[in-house]
């Protein structure tokens, strides 16, 4: 039914919502919000949560082969943080009306997307350095922006996450710096890791602004405060000097400091590769889905035991 009265009420809601957004106020779960805002946020937040969860897999690959007990402890702590990040964002997303079990089911059945970067393999120990330094470094740039987004639960989850994320990127950078002071083979391993990860990391920021279908709405609603290209540039500008400081060469012939714009210029990103990885054809898409499903299955007995224990105690 679409009587004039209902349309009028709807318009009042929209106006109130828009003026709160432009006043920089946050929207909270029980506030009225446009259907599209709810839908886009749920899509973004669930994809983000899935990324934290799937992101544990490439690093988990090196847990049993970390070069020292200390490195192993650090990697474990980082991976545990990522599980927590997934949890914070799932619980933020639940406030939009979909429960966590439903979202996890969408991940396990392959209906949901997660960050394309985790569909690349981690082939040697230096990859743990490159992932921490570059992947988490890119995540920091993204998440610092999202910490100011208009949806309260998302923003608060991001603030919490950003506090932990610096440790991730620093421990990665330290691994790289350490290897660059090592033997020639170690230096080559570190450089090789960056050669493989650099471009896929730049793709983490998503398609170019001219080809980003959801960006307009998200920016209008202050879910996104900066465009994909702006955030990508910010990441490059802060990362290149870090690479230079430890003797890593960024694998981009066109990379060049522009003293006028005070930004780095860089080569062309292969967005066809991004599209192909997102649509399921990256090097590890199938492996990640299998690993995630196996982990869920293998953990079933723990969840069943927890329920049995709770039931037994409730009876006693």
């Amino acid at each position: 039914m679409n009587t004039p009265q209902i349309q009028e009420d709807e318009q009042t809601h929209i106006d109130a919502f828009n003026s709160r957004i432009s006043a920089g106020q946050t929207i909270e779960p029980k506030d009225w919000m446009p259907q599209k805002y709810r839908k886009q946020l749920l899509r973004m937040m669930s994809q983000h949560a899935h990324s934290e969860v799937v992101g544990m897999l490439p690093e988990g690959n090196w847990l049993t082969r970390a070069p020292s007990l200390m490195r192993k402890a650090v990697l474990l702590a980082k991976i545990q943080d990522e599980a927590g990040h997934g949890l914070y964002i799932y619980s933020g997303a639940e406030t939009l009306g979909t429960d966590r079990a439903e979202m996890i089911d969408q991940l396990l059945t392959g209906k949901a997307k997660y960050a394309s970067i985790f569909n690349y393999p981690t082939l040697n120990w230096a990859d743990m350095g490159a992932v921490g330094w570059l992947v988490d470094g890119a995540a920091i740039v993204n998440q610092t922006a999202l910490a100011k987004c208009s949806y309260g639960p998302y923003s608060r989850a991001m603030i919490r996450i950003c506090k932990e994320e610096n440790f991730h990127s620093k421990q990665g950078y330290q691994i790289m710096a350490h290897m660059m002071r090592g033997t020639k083979e170690q230096q080559e391993m570190a450089q090789d890791a960056v050669n493989r990860f650099w471009w896929p990391v730049l793709m983490m920021f998503g398609p170019s602004d001219s080809d980003s279908p959801n960006s307009d709405d998200l920016m209008k609603w202050k879910v996104k405060l900066y465009s994909n290209d702006d955030l990508r540039q910010r990441f490059i500008d802060r990362t290149v000097p870090q690479a230079e400081a430890i003797g890593i060469k960024i694998p981009d012939d066109k990379l060049k400091w522009n003293p006028t714009t005070r930004h780095y210029e860089f080569g062309e990103i292969n967005f066809d590769e991004l599209k192909s990885v997102i649509t399921g054809n990256g090097p590890c898409n199938k492996l990640r889905m299998k690993q995630r499903n196996d982990a869920h299955k293998n953990g079933a007995w723990v969840r069943e035991a927890a329920v049995a224990y709770a039931e037994k105690k409730a009876k006693a």
């Binding site: 949890l87 914070y88 619980s91 966590r100 608060r156 989850a157 919490r160 927890a306 329920v307 224990y309 709770a310 105690k313 409730a314």
Partner: peptide, 11 residues
């Protein structure tokens, strides 16, 4: 601080 899911209060 946030929330968690668990089958009972202790967990």
């Amino acid at each position: 601080a946030g929330n968690v899911h668990a089958p009972d209060a202790e967990m």
